[in-house]
């Protein structure tokens, strides 16, 4: 079974023509083009669809192999939905393309997708609710490995030990259950579970938000180490900007389902262009009592994604709002090499 699976679908196997095409952009692991995901609002008579929540509405970016992209934004702006839609975890997309190694993942059959799952993994936000309370740790980490037949049976135990060791867990932890672990250790288990499948691409959905500062540092260091060892690519979703700045190579800023600014970490943090990015970064509290605060306080709150404003979605809260912002939807524009922004202020 295991041999058969391997030849069916493995990136190095010759019988995978779709992947051969990707040689042209071999350093781009993931391309997302104008991705859309709407959720229906049901109500009224006969539970008809009365509207759509536009959770993700036109997200475009490329992700280079071996790098980390940080995705930041307020809660409810669609960061998590973007991550899940890229992995095809929340049903069908509404529009756009997701190309993983040049392969559109929404075109894959169920069986092909199942094999691709070993290459793309996710680490969930809450380590307290994402582990089955009735399975021992060894089983949680090893279940998918056995299911996909990644390692021969006689090497299985050693393999799990090795993965656990890499993630800072002891071999005797294998027999224990999730409730016996602290938050930081549980997050290590979640990471080990994702990495046991030897993935290329991992979506980290707020992996450190539920943890204490000192534990946060341990987990961030672990993620960095593992990236070097396994040459992983991360999509790091977080609302903590300081963590994103530390871990990412490129950063995307989301607002109300759309990517408003995207580019290299240094460009974004040194020279934020979009008014929303500027406001967001000025709101970060600095741990220095003498620091000068030039804070741009945004008025009001984020509009409902079920009824987003016309034109630029940010115009209702923007200090530099112009007449055309209220009617025309701005296009994504490359202002500097590799630095994209969606704003009328930068139109020529």
């Amino acid at each position: 079974m295991s041999d058969a699976t391997k030849t069916d679908y493995a990136p190095d196997a010759p019988a995978a023509p779709a992947l051969q095409d990707s040689e042209a952009h071999s350093d781009t692991i993931l391309q997302v083009r104008d991705l859309k995901k709407y959720f229906p609002i049901k109500g009224g008579f006969m539970n008809r669809v009365v509207g759509w929540v536009k959770a993700v509405d036109g997200v475009t970016f490329n992700l280079k192999r071996g790098t980390t992209m940080g995705l930041v934004g307020e809660s409810g702006c669609g960061k998590t939905t973007t991550g899940r839609t890229i992995l095809r975890l929340s049903g069908d997309k509404t529009g756009g393309d997701v190309l993983f190694n040049g392969q559109e993942i929404y075109d894959l059959s169920h069986e092909e997708l199942r094999h691709l799952r070993t290459k793309m993994q996710i680490i969930f936000q809450d380590p307290f609710s994402s582990l089955s309370p009735r399975l021992p740790i060894g089983e949680i980490i090893g279940e998918a490995v056995r299911e996909h037949g990644l390692v021969p049976k006689d090497q299985f135990d050693d393999y799990i030990d090795e993965v656990m060791d890499n993630c800072g867990l002891q071999p005797f932890h294998k027999e224990r259950y999730p409730h016996e672990f602290s938050g930081g250790q549980r997050q290590r288990i979640c990471i080990a579970r994702a990495l046991a499948l030897n993935p290329e691409f991992v979506v980290c959905d707020e992996p450190v938000s539920a943890l204490d500062v000192s534990i946060q540092a341990q987990i961030i260091n672990l993620l960095n180490e593992l990236q070097e060892t396994y040459s992983l690519t991360y999509l790091f979703i977080s609302h903590d900007l300081s963590v994103v700045e530390h871990i990412s190579d490129t950063v995307g800023v989301m607002y109300l389902g759309g990517l408003v600014e995207y580019g290299d970490k240094r460009d974004i943090f040194a020279n934020p262009l979009h008014p929303y990015t500027k406001a967001l970064f000025s709101a970060i509290p600095i741990p220095d009592p003498d620091a000068k605060m030039n804070r741009i306080v945004l008025e009001g709150s984020i509009p409902s994604p079920a009824d987003p404003p016309q034109g630029c979605k940010f115009h209702t809260r923007c200090a530099q709002c112009m007449q055309r912002c209220k009617t025309e939807v701005p296009e994504q524009r490359e202002v500097e090499p590799g630095h994209y922004v969606v704003c009328h202020l930068y139109d020529e």
Partner: peptide, 8 residues
């Protein structure tokens, strides 16, 4: 809360 709301 988010950073922008936190600032408020």
């Amino acid at each position: 809360l988010d950073v922008t709301i936190q600032a408020q």
